[in-house]
Design a protein around this nucleic acid. Sequence first.
RNA 1: UCCCCGAUAGCUCAAUCGGUAGAGCGAGCGGCUGUUAACCGCUAGGUUGUAGGUUCGAGCCCUACUCGGGGAGCCA
Length: 555
Amino acid sequence: MPTQSRLPFTSDVDRIPSCQRADICENAHPVAWLATPGGPAGERSICQWVQQGGPMKVTVDELQEHVGAEVTLSGWVVHNRPSGKVGFVIVRDGTGLCQCVVEKTRVSDDLFEALKHLGTESSLSITGTVRAEPRSPGGHELVVTDATILCPAVDYPITPKEHGVDFLLRHRHLHLRSQRAWCIGRVRHTVVDAIRRFFNDEGFILVDTPIFTTLAGEGEQTLFAVDYFGQPVHLAQTGQLYLEAAAMSHRKVYCFGPTFRAEKSKTRRHLAEFWMVEPEVAFIDLDGLLGLAERFVTAIIQAVLERNRSELQTLETDVPALERITPPFPRLTYSQAVDILRGERTARFLADELADLQRRLAKVETRIAQIEAEDARGGLKKWKQEKNAQELIALRRERIDLTAAIENNPKHAALAAEFTWGKDLGGSDETILSRMHDKPLFVTHYPKAAKAFYMKVDRAEERVVENFDLLAPAGFGEIIGGSMREDDYPRLAGRIDELGYNPEHYQWYLDLRRYGSVPHGGFGLGVERTVAWITGERHIRHCIAFPRMMDRLYL
RNA sequence: UCCCCGAUAGCUCAAUCGGUAGAGCGAGCGGCUGUUAACCGCUAGGUUGUAGGUUCGAGCCCUACUCGGGGAGCCA
């Protein structure tokens, strides 16, 4: 683990041939540097830092093994807090955070002065003695004896105070360095690793399906058109159809990659480009698929719980809720779900929720009025004024959220109450159902008309298909969609015909039903939605390094 | 495509009835021996998203547009 998370900085530079390295040195941004006490002052480049010797270079996650020793950390300044005779520099190095204490008596005057004026996100290597210190984030601190500033950062745009969504996305390349983005990135890494591990351990064969494709999996309206040497094709919205072909070779296969949807969705659950893993299995039935999905999701949760406790803590995730995610997951058929949505229990559930929201809004309003009255009366101490201002900002933000929720609640209630059999479940319907459970919820057997052409018609009830969605609990909504695939040639060909698709595009797909067709099925899990659910992050745009959304693609 | 909300200093936000723009953070300088979103003092920083309109007077009211946020539809 530690080796994986360690920065490749030193080794990468070392790998550059020395002739090119000289070049880099010449072109390197000259930086102010600080000599060891008594040494010469001047300018140094990053390459010279790489080449220098000195105390053992360690990373923050290794500090506990070096208590009492003098070591060198390399990283970036998270926060700098100088004062007259002692300064505190919080350094992060990609593996963790460490407080570095700069005592005036222990370092040269030049170094003390330079560190005093060092801006947030400056890069440096910093040497000192390790000691246990509960007040330091991470539990260890460095008593500084020397430091080399590699690249001072002036006016770093992201400040310790809050920022808006738009600003942070515009600065996503820098925002990735923030604590929260770092934690989510590490959880995502675990999720992706757990996904691969699960399928590999279960004997699945990885098949990489094409990105450029002529086929539509779900419907032709939601695809990104691409000019492929003059031929109109589009970016894959699923690897499934290809995967079905591969499943007839390996029996159990999966694909894992980016997928593209041109849906004009502006919600916290949608991205135009997201990562999806899709298993496909020959000789399985719907029950087998549900079991597979159940074990799969449980394995992902277990891996995160094992490896990312501290990240979950920093993210303020509800860990006990994750620990409750064990098989079996509750199961409902679509028809049962419709009854629930239209039923009294749902109406009461939503009414209770509305009442609760209104109570909370009233409380917020009262508090705002209180503070405003306090401010109007005047004569407040400066710190009190400031505290009030901060609280007002938070309260007003909460008021906006609550107002939106109160406005949406009756709309969602109406959608649920007026739900008629045959429609697909909407986002709000799924949210309601999932909010009623504290485990992921399977909903199966949707109406044929609301679902994709390839789903297998239930032979016992021909108006529905053998499919399922898995809804994450606590209102997050759908993270998996899957189905048995229609394996009967005439039925599938008929469906393609009914929907008016171009049969020529589907000849190879129909071949799979011509030659040795077998019952088979699979599902797709959205990585970002899964990460958002697990971390408690409300918007999936924070669960991918560089999100692509409708009308938004900054970098 | 539709519905709701928003745009004021680098950032987050104030600005009473329509009366001529203010805080905090960040930046710069100074002070402080243990801080941890430290604290204290000083300094700089604005054509209020764009274009029109109403008015003696518009950040505030009206119209259109642009950009952004939330939601519906659609979906992982």
